[in-house]
Design a protein around this nucleic acid. Sequence first.
DNA 1: ACCTGCACTAAATAGCGCTCGTTACACT
DNA 2: AGTGTAACGAGCGCTATTTAGTGCAGGT
Length: 181
Amino acid sequence: MVELVNVVGSGSFDREFDLSVVAEDLGSLAEFDEEKYPGMYVRLSEDSPLATIYRTGKFIVTGADSIDELYDVREELVDVLTGPGIILEDDLEWFSVQNLVCTTVLSSDLKLNALAIGLGLEQTEYEPEQFPGLIYRNPDFECVALIFSTGKAVITGSSDLEEAEAVASFLEEKLSRLQLN
DNA sequence: ACCTGCACTAAATAGCGCTCGTTACACT
DNA sequence: AGTGTAACGAGCGCTATTTAGTGCAGGT
């Protein structure tokens, strides 16, 4: 059982933007400081995910806590940009999920040194002085897991939830066989 | 000229170090 | 009572991971 906590998506509009002008049109919804970063931030409401729009027409959305919310933000963004005539409704070329961040609880307390050996040293990184979590990369999966001594884990890097769930199941099965807690 | 790394954003995880505020105690 | 110092807790920022995007600096 994994819990989705952050979804990142990206897309592209079929036009380029003068971000200074767009930022002015969007008023308080937009934040643009060219000196600091080349992208313009757009937050549609106080707690909503953040959209970052670039001069080239490409954009990313970060901070959604579900895939549905990510697509809702995409719709709202299109509406907000269509309103003042910044884009036309069919200017959206494509949009897709790029990255999911999930959390899960694998077990109770874990001995990470033993786990690193059990999972295979070539697939793990564990340097507690540097970072308290064990980093696990399995070439059979596209995502990466951060495993902590509390038994909690973060799974990131996949673009679909089934992949993250598969990694969690794999790790749970490994742990039950290794009996490290 | 080309490649790499960094600037930034979101989110969870946990441990360490630092700063800041509050409280307690000693001394004048 | 007022002031100075010490101790402690809370809160924050950093460490690491991932991903998209652009632009600039620096190195090869």
